[in-house]
Computed example of a mutant assay.
Amino acid sequence: MTFSVIAAFTIILVVLTAGEFVSAKTKAFVPSVFVSAVLFLIGFWTFLPKDIIEQGSFAKPIVYISMYLLLVHMGTLMSLKELLSQWKTVVIALTGIIGICLLTLTVGKLLFGWETVVAGTPPLTGGVVASILMSKAATDKGLTSIAVLATSMYIMQGFVGYPISALCLKKEAKRVLGIYKTDGKKSNSAKKAVNFTPRKKLLPPLPEKYQTPYMILLKLGLVGWLASLIGPVIHVNDFVVCLILGVIGCEIGFLEEKALNKANAFGFLMTTLMAFIFANLSQATPSMLKQIIAPLFGIIVLGVLGMFIVSLIVGKLLGFSKEMAFACTLTALYGFPADYILTHEAVKSVCETKDETEYVLDDMLPKMLVAGFTTVTIASVIIAGFFVKLL
């Protein structure tokens, strides 16, 4: 079935809006990304064409542009000091990956066999690259069902990660809001008073009349382009470099704070990215899931249990609440932009004023973003490169 471009676009937005509606009605108890994923899956199994996302013009070129611009923008939401201070988050996220491997390679091996857990574990640690590497390795060895498992693991893990993360983040948001209401208001007011006087930066700000959407997007594009050139040279993923350069660009005054919001482009770019994420569900046919459902969900359950145990121990040692520590490790199941959206939904569901929302977001969002990059963008690729040799 083929739709016109505007019809396909509208259908996609109906599904995404339905997810937000349910999330708002349930106060983020049921996250929007989970609802949208279920609706897309049902749609792909019934009446939606497999390429509905591409028919709606959410194809790879615009998606990659969105990724570069959004991740540079995310850097403008954090200070350099804040980014460097997230070393505890990195440690928790990495130990969460270790927790996954410990249980899947021991208990999982006994239940499902060595080849199954070796192929299924790297995609569980996050990232499409890990899924592709393991699927190709299994196919090269003639292990067709194992290759299907590797692909399905990447596609289906979010169904477990979304609702558990939503619960953890909502509890954490309530905890941080409680701190704000008891003794955080004064410190937040003092922080705002300091921030009200602009810090002197290396580059003077552009006059207001030149801070147009074109100019802001141009500067974001230049930083993203620079990241794409630097990334391969230093062997770091382009998107990680985008975040780092976004922080630096904002610190020196080249980029505006909350750049995409000022360019009025954030909403559309995020919509583009979310639509493309769900395109992967078109591969998950009922027959595919029936074939590998036991090891698929068995490995996911073991992985999540491993993350929970490790995050409980390490999070306590590093001063994180158990909910925040667990949520940081769970980013391995979805990464960006779901980590951003789930955090925002949780915070909006418990906060009533703008000051409350800003305070809680400032505490939670940097942790989730850094955790997501640590697990999905960095650790999963390293894990996959090692596990390919074990298959």
Rank of each mutant, 00 (worst) to 15 (best):
N237Y: 05
L245D: 10
N280D: 04
P213R: 00
F196S: 11
V176E: 11
L260H: 08
A265R: 10
S189M: 09
Y210I: 11
L203E: 06
V194Q: 15
E256W: 02
A294V: 12
L206S: 02
L177M: 03
M215H: 09
L281C: 06
L273N: 14
T182E: 14
C250F: 06
P213C: 00
L245V: 00
L217Q: 08
V247H: 02
P198C: 00
F266G: 09
L218N: 06
N261F: 14
L206I: 13
F266M: 15
E172Q: 15
K290D: 10
N261T: 03
G231H: 06
Q291Y: 05
G253I: 01
V236N: 04
M288L: 15
A190T: 06
M274S: 13
I230E: 09
I248A: 08
G249M: 05
A265K: 11
T271F: 07
Q211C: 05
C250M: 06
K219M: 09
L206P: 07
V223H: 06
V194G: 08
S287T: 03
I234R: 07
K174V: 01
E251C: 03
G184K: 11
P286F: 04
S189D: 15
L289Y: 10
T271N: 07
I292C: 05
I216M: 12
T272L: 11
V247E: 04
E256T: 13
G267S: 09
P207L: 03
K185Q: 15
I234W: 05
A263Y: 04
P213M: 03
I244K: 06
P232F: 00
A193W: 11
L296W: 08
T285H: 02
P207A: 12
K192T: 14
R175Q: 10
E256S: 10
G267Y: 08
G224T: 00
L220A: 03
V176C: 03
A173M: 01
K258R: 08
I292F: 05
L226R: 09
F239P: 14
D183Q: 11
P286L: 01
V240K: 04
K192A: 09
F276G: 00
T212K: 15
E172R: 13
L243D: 02
I244P: 14
L220I: 13
I293Q: 15
L177Q: 09
F268P: 14
E251L: 04
N261V: 07
A263T: 08
A263Q: 10
P232E: 01
L269H: 05
V240A: 09
C242L: 00
F254T: 13
N264H: 12
G184P: 11
L226E: 02
G249Y: 00
I252Q: 07
C242T: 07
N280Q: 08
P295V: 02
L245E: 01
K191W: 03
I244L: 03
D183K: 15
E251Q: 13
L269M: 12
K219Y: 05
E208G: 04
K181L: 08
D183W: 14
G231L: 02
R175I: 01
F239S: 12
E208D: 04
K186I: 04
V240S: 01
S187C: 11
S187R: 14
K181I: 02
F276D: 09
E251A: 10
I234G: 05
E257W: 02
E256H: 10
A193S: 15
K200L: 12
E172L: 07
T272V: 10
L296Y: 03
T285I: 02
